[in-house]
């Protein structure tokens, strides 16, 4: 079964939201990859995940441009329990303003040791996806709230400074 035409999500479930305990597995996966393969291996995983698993989304973005990006993130966060997010469309960019990150919130509530690099995953993964769609991503903030900015390449956003992404704290 493919996703219904009305959903911007490429893979759909029978329930409206996911199970937040899966954030524990995402955090644990990052820790395992960082310990076994190092930062470069973890980054490679995220980039290949972005180009591979997320290829249907990248294609949507490539074909639909920034409005498709906005539609996707609204649908994405509606399916993530506990997310408080505003998706703001500008003529030249889309800002995903994450006021309460559902993953960081749940990991903290569960008393989990959060991987310090956790918030960088959104950049490495998202940048690979954006690049595949002819877009760019910049990320600032982290550790519970942040802003993702998607823009067309020609917009000429300043290069990403990884120091703009905060270390995630438990």
């Amino acid at each position: 079964m493919s996703a219904p035409a009305s959903s911007p999500l490429p893979h759909v479930d029978t329930k409206p939201q996911g199970s937040a305990d899966f954030y524990y597995a995402v955090n644990a996966t990052f820790r395992f990859l960082l310990q076994r393969l190092g930062p470069d291996g973890w980054r490679r995983y995220l980039e290949e995940l972005g180009r591979g698993y997320f290829e249907p989304v990248n294609r949507q973005w490539s074909q639909g441009g920034l409005p498709a990006v906005a539609r996707y993130w609204r649908a994405f966060f509606a399916a993530e329990p506990g997310a408080v997010v505003d998706v703001v469309e500008h003529p030249d960019r889309v800002e995903v303003q994450v006021r309460e990150c559902p993953a960081i919130k749940h990991l903290r509530a569960g008393g989990r040791e959060i991987v310090g690099e956790y918030c960088q995953h959104c950049y490495f993964l998202g940048a690979a996806r954006a690049e595949a769609a002819g877009l760019t991503l910049r990320l600032s903030g982290g550790s519970g709230s942040c802003c993702h900015t998607y823009a067309r390449r020609e917009t000429g956003l300043a290069p990403q400074d990884l120091r703009e992404i905060k270390e995630a704290r438990s």
Binding site: L9, H11, D13, Q17, G18, S19, A20, D21, F22, Y23, A25, V26, T29, Y45, L49, G52, Y53, F76, A79, E80, P81, C101, P102, A103, H121, C122, L125, G126
Partner: peptide
Amino acid sequence: MIGCYDFCGHYEWTF
């Protein structure tokens, strides 16, 4: 962001 809604999809991809 890696979400929990389609967790089984990216989990299986990871294997």
